[in-house]
């Protein structure tokens, strides 16, 4: 039940956020998509023991949070929901990689470094995706996909799936409630009801699909989807992409924290 509510909340939250009007929201969706992908590639290309080089990359999500006026608290809360997943994946590392290494006088297992690295990467990559969808609506994103020559059929299908997720989740939620009110002791759907519970929803779904098809047809649909046309790329879009790319590349090549750190220790000495 919590799952159902939670995902509905997720979709609504991001949908609402994506309608804001800030300089970030006004950027071309294609630029935001490409910047996100470039960011992800840079993060993902870091070695498995890399930590220091990852730190400057926190700059990107933070600035977007501020400039796009996003509620950091709410989004981070969403992030915490999925944290157990990555801890599950990464936690084996400290056990498997037991070579000790010394860091500033402390000795720890190398696996912890790997774990920390995965942990940071995971949070940064997931945040980047969430930031993309909180600043770009599904509609704009699909327009960007059309520019990238993703076929109409897929884009329309994607939009329909997105649209009907909330309708079906609501329907499911009502069914679940009706079920659990009459089966208070149960943890999930009993095996005797598996087929009919999901099946009924599915049948209704298929009937709905037919009506949706009729509604589309009555308004002249003939298998072609005409996407929203969006504004052309302008200089601020290019500048945004170039700016971030430059930063990412620099942060990747030059280890900024080490540089700052050695400057600092140098001064003390």
């Amino acid at each position: 039940m919590a799952d159902i509510k939670n995902s509905l909340y997720n979709i609504r939250l991001f949908d609402e956020l994506s309608l804001k009007k800030t300089p970030i929201h006004n950027l071309h969706p294609l630029i935001k998509l490409l910047t996100t992908i470039f960011y992800l590639v840079m993060i993902v290309s870091m070695g498995k023991h890399e930590i220091s080089r990852l730190i400057p990359f926190i700059f990107y999500p933070m600035l977007i949070f501020v400039l796009a006026e996003l509620p950091a608290y709410q989004i981070i809360k969403r992030l915490l929901f999925i944290e157990p997943l990555i801890i599950g994946v990464g936690i084996l590392n400290p056990l498997l990689e037991q070579q000790l290494i010394a860091i500033g006088g402390f000795e720890i297992s190398k696996g912890w470094i790997t774990f920390l690295s995965i942990f940071i990467k995971y949070n940064l990559t997931v945040t980047a995706c969430i930031l993309l969808i909180s600043t770009t609506s599904m509609l704009q994103l699909s327009a960007a996909l059309r520019i990238l020559r993703v076929p109409r059929v897929f884009v329309l299908q994607l939009l329909l799936t997105y649209r009907y997720i909330s309708v079906l989740i609501e329907e499911l939620f009502r069914m679940y409630r009706a079920y659990s009110l009459r089966a208070p002791q149960q943890k999930g759907i009993h095996k005797n009801a598996w087929g009919s519970f999901a099946g009924h929803l599915l049948l209704r779904t298929i009937e709905r699909a037919q009506r949706v098809y009729q509604a589309m047809n009555l308004r002249g649909f003939s298998g072609e989807y005409h996407a929203k046309s969006i504004k052309k790329l302008n200089s601020s879009d290019y500048l945004y992409f170039a700016g971030w790319s430059l930063f990412f590349v620099i942060a990747k090549i030059i280890n900024i924290p080490i540089l700052i750190g050695s400057l600092f220790t140098g001064v003390i000495k």
Partner: peptide, 25 residues
């Protein structure tokens, strides 16, 4: 035609897009 269940008719992500679906076709 206006359907009984508006959820069947409003299949696009925003109201504007939905109203534009027909004319664009």
């Amino acid at each position: 035609m206006v359907f009984q269940d508006p959820d069947d008719q409003l299949f696009m992500p925003t109201v504007y897009e939905d109203a534009a679906f027909g004319p664009r076709n």
